[in-house]
């Protein structure tokens, strides 16, 4: 499932070639074709809509900067998704302390926008995913939703494949527990 099914012949796409040559409008077409999937990925990995918007922007800016290095060995979609995962996981390092961002914005109201979620309310799957601990959420989204293998996740998230497997089972147990309550 997921990313790997899509192996379109986008390499020869004139729009892609134009974007690679530095045409921002051609890149705009690529952006609009892919933004929905990239935003969904960022949202599920970040668990926060505002953060996901920032990350989505970062992904496309980075894609633009790195477009010349895309050689068409894989489908463009696959390349872009891997790039997106790297952008999100790398971002965690900076945002590993959520408070950082508050400090940078220096907005006292930002203190109040915490991650408070009312307990006991019935959760849909999407909400339950966003509630998972970060490590478990990452692996669940990448493996079960996006279709990456444990080996691929291991490389990207710098964890052992066995760790990825353990996190996946932990995530599923938590999700099932919440959804059935």
């Amino acid at each position: 499932m997921g990313v790997h099914e899509i192996a379109s012949g986008m390499n020869a796409d004139p729009g892609l070639l134009a974007a690679q040559a530095g045409d921002p409008d051609a890149f705009g077409t690529l952006y609009h074709a892919h933004v929905g999937r990239i935003f969904a990925l960022c949202l599920r990995l970040a668990g926060d809509s505002r953060r996901a918007e920032e990350l989505t922007q970062d992904v496309f800016v980075r894609a633009w900067e790195r477009l010349s290095s895309f050689r068409g060995e894989s489908a463009f979609t696959t390349w872009l998704h891997r790039l997106a995962v790297n952008v999100v996981l790398t971002d965690r390092r900076t945002a590993w302390r959520r408070s950082r961002r508050f400090e940078l914005t220096d907005d006292p109201a930002a203190f109040e926008r915490g991650v408070d979620r009312s307990e006991g309310v019935e959760l849909d799957l999407e909400a339950a995913i966003s509630r998972l601990p970060e490590g478990a959420r990452t692996v669940f989204v990448l493996h079960d939703v996006e279709g990456f293998t444990h080996d691929e996740i291991a490389d990207m998230a710098r964890i052992a494949a066995g760790t990825s497997r353990a996190q996946l089972f932990r995530a599923r147990r938590l999700l099932r527990g919440w959804l059935e309550r």
Binding site: G135, I159, A160, G162, T163, A166, Q167, F169, R170, R173
Partner: peptide, 11 residues
């Protein structure tokens, strides 16, 4: 020094 949970992981 310590335990790792049943479906836990430690790197």
């Amino acid at each position: 020094a310590g335990a790792v949970g049943a479906v836990g992981s430690l790197d």
